[in-house]
């Protein structure tokens, strides 16, 4: 895992004590598009695109905007260094994966 990915993971663990946390580095999917090149040209690392899935009791009762803001605030340093960040944050109900029969 890259240095930014580990830092994202660590901070989210500390702040939200999540019951589920996935930090997915999707940079390889974007290696050829303009954003990734710009990012590299600006001196950015190879870690440019992240998708995070986080489930935590601490999101209970928060609006979508508030959940996202809570996460973005914790990760401001990391987000400043990357090109793209997407997030699925929930308080924990209804997260069963679809079961194929």
């Amino acid at each position: 895992m890259g240095i930014i990915a580990s830092s994202i993971k660590e901070k989210l663990k500390q702040s939200f004590n999540p019951s589920q946390l996935e930090v997915i580095d999707e940079s390889h999917k974007h290696a050829h598009h303009r954003g990734a090149h710009e990012h590299a040209a600006d001196g950015g690392s190879a870690e440019s695109h992240f998708h995070v899935v986080i489930i935590s009791d601490k999101f209970e009762g928060l609006s979508r905007l508030a959940k996202h803001r809570a996460v973005l605030d914790v990760l401001s340093e990391e987000i400043a260094q990357i090109h793209a960040f997407s997030l699925e944050a929930s308080a924990g109900q209804c997260v069963e994966l679809p079961v194929s029969v």
């Binding site: 905007l65 400043a80 960040f85």
Partner: peptide, 15 residues
Amino acid sequence: WPTIPQVFVKGEFIG
């Protein structure tokens, strides 16, 4: 808010 795109409806930031 650190990312783009951003959507506003009637002046209010939606997300």
